[in-house]
């Protein structure tokens, strides 16, 4: 195929991704991570090809078996001949900025499969379980032709809300010994889950935990029916027992994910389309926040103005509202347009 674009340009890379070039896929994800100025242009060229992949988030406390389950789910998807992308996020050290990314160890048998792509990603400065470039990485994989994307979050034990913004279906993995049903409710885990998996069903306490969670899910479903006034309007989160380590219950997990997808599909434009649009809006908002932050604070002028105002006795609220008023009026201090 001939191309009008130089090989190393944003458009050239995007074209190669659309043609199934893995070197270009992997490079574009790095551009996204590094904030490379070429990434937005490349993504723009990929945008028309997005939307085919089903994005499944796998979250839950450390050591619950997320990576092991991702490995098993990917193997099951490969048996259906699907193209699978995996994004595995681990935490960065807030002190050194370094990271040890170890999720791949559990996915070794997938490494040789040309229909699977695994990318480890450090969370860098993001909190909430995802990396800032997580959605971008999924977009690139989606455009590349992945039909399923599995996203393993950091795993901090608390609800990782960012994963909801990146995924169509969120699977929360729990296991006996990593907290009981009440703790799960406290941590807000039920609110993020579309599917709950109690992993390590081979261990004592798994059934008990599954019962706890089922009860909590049931209570929650009744409550949301009361709010919406429509009986049965809400999706009742299934609780699935599995042992990823022994490759048991994996098909049931996959079935629960498929049912969740079918539920969204059955709602027509109020289902998947609506959900995805809302998530994009939230992403845009996040990007605007980041860009504002970067542009507003990229000189010392604003900092100096704040210090002077404080010295003159102004309060944080007073200074902030003055500064924001000035910014919105387009006052030039501290604010630099991208070109300059």
């Amino acid at each position: 195929m001939t191309s009008n674009h130089p090989k190393n340009s944003a458009e050239g890379y995007a074209e190669r991704v659309l043609q199934g070039d893995r070197r270009a896929l992997t490079r574009l994800i790095s551009w996204a991570e590094n904030g490379d100025g070429r990434f937005p242009g490349a993504l723009a060229a990929l945008y028309p090809s997005l939307g085919r992949a089903w994005r499944v988030g796998i979250t839950g406390p450390p050591g619950a078996g997320k990576s092991t389950l991702v490995n098993e789910l990917a193997l099951a998807m490969r048996r259906e001949d699907l193209e699978v992308g995996i994004l595995a996020v681990d935490p960065s050290s807030p002190f050194t900025g370094g990271a040890l990314l170890g999720d791949r160890i559990r996915m070794e048998e997938l490494t040789g499969d040309q229909h699977v792509y695994i990318r480890s990603m450090a969370s860098r400065k993001s909190h909430g379980g995802m990396a800032r470039a997580g959605v971008d990485a999924c977009d690139v994989m989606d455009a590349f032709g992945m039909e399923r994307i599995l996203i393993e979050t950091v795993g901090v034990g608390q609800a990782e809300y960012d994963v909801m913004g990146a995924c169509d279906t969120v699977v929360v993995v729990m296991c006996p010994g990593a907290g009981d049903g009440v703790q799960a409710m406290k941590a807000g885990i039920l609110e993020v889950a579309d599917v709950l998996v109690v992993n390590k069903s081979d261990l004592a306490g798994a059934e008990r935990l599954a019962d706890d969670l089922s009860e909590a899910v049931h209570t929650r479903a009744i409550r949301s029916d009361e709010w919406s006034g429509e009986v049965g309007s809400s999706w009742t989160v299934p609780v699935v027992l599995a042992s990823a380590g022994k490759a048991q219950g994996v098909d049931e997990v996959l079935k629960a994910i498929t049912s969740h997808r079918a539920m969204l599909d059955s709602r027509g434009p109020n289902g998947l389309e609506d959900a995805r649009r809302k998530k994009r809006v939230a992403q845009v908002r996040r990007v605007i926040d980041e860009e504002l932050d970067a542009r507003v604070w990229n000189t010392d002028e604003l900092g100096a103005r704040v210090e002077n105002a404080l010295a003159a006795g102004s309060t944080a609220y007073g200074i902030a509202s003055e500064v924001v008023d000035d910014l919105l009026r387009g006052a030039a201090f501290g604010m630099r347009s991208k070109e300059s």
Binding site: T96, G98, I105, S120
Partner: peptide, 11 residues
């Protein structure tokens, strides 16, 4: 890692 690098460990 402590030197600030991102290290992928494969086993």
């Amino acid at each position: 890692r402590d030197a600030g690098m991102e290290v992928i460990y494969t086993g």
